[in-house]
Amino acid sequence: IPPPAKKPLTKIVSHLLVVEPEKIYAMPDPTMPDGDIKALTTLCDLADRELVVIIGWAKHIPGFSTLSLADQMSLLQSAWMEILVLSIVFRSLPCEDEIVYAEDYVIDEEQARISGLLDLHVAILPLVRRYKKLRMEKEEFVTLKAIALANSDSMHIENIEAVQRLQDSLHEALQDFEGSQHPEDPRRAGKLLMTLPLLRQTATKAVQHFYSIKMQGKVPMHKLFLEMLEAK
């Protein structure tokens, strides 16, 4: 007997799956000597390119582009690191205690120690464990990523009602998805939303980590990454 066909996904979740950006690669510079400067240079360069992609992706979230430009900027300035961290965490789910910064940049604890990335590694792993336990699916990941953006608690929002409408539509999409795909667990949407505080904590630690690296001035950083770091 074939398994029962899965119910169709909600429009928003299907749309978010379609607009999910392509993988990007870290491409560490082979001419640089191995060590913490190389590792951090690779990550900062990767983050800068990911940011360009995240800004383009945000414009495809239904309702985001109708916000004022100022509100779009405020949401992205607050949430960009949460979006970056959530993407890294989702990529790392199939691994055991390794962080997949990119397909070609998978770091285990020992490599993290050598490369000066141990603090970041230790900060991200609890989030990976949390989503592993929940067995987070791709549909849930893309929806939660959009929710993290809409729910970024920026202090500078002009049109609070419009941002609230965006939050409501994404929240509803998550609830509808869980209602149709996971009727056996009526609290699944809530469980996913309850991971957002740990995501914010982790992103805050990551921002602090990169901000202190910026202050030390030893690692080259591209302009967009610097601009977003300074906005925090």
């Binding site: 607009v19 360009v52 414009k59 900027m73 992205l76 601009e227």
Partner: peptide, 20 residues
């Protein structure tokens, strides 16, 4: 806004992430 020039430009630019 002047301080956040690149973000501002990228949001105004109509290029989709799929093209990037």
């Amino acid at each position: 806004k002047e301080k956040h020039k690149i973000l501002h430009q990228l949001l105004q630019n109509s290029t989709s992430p799929v093209d990037l």
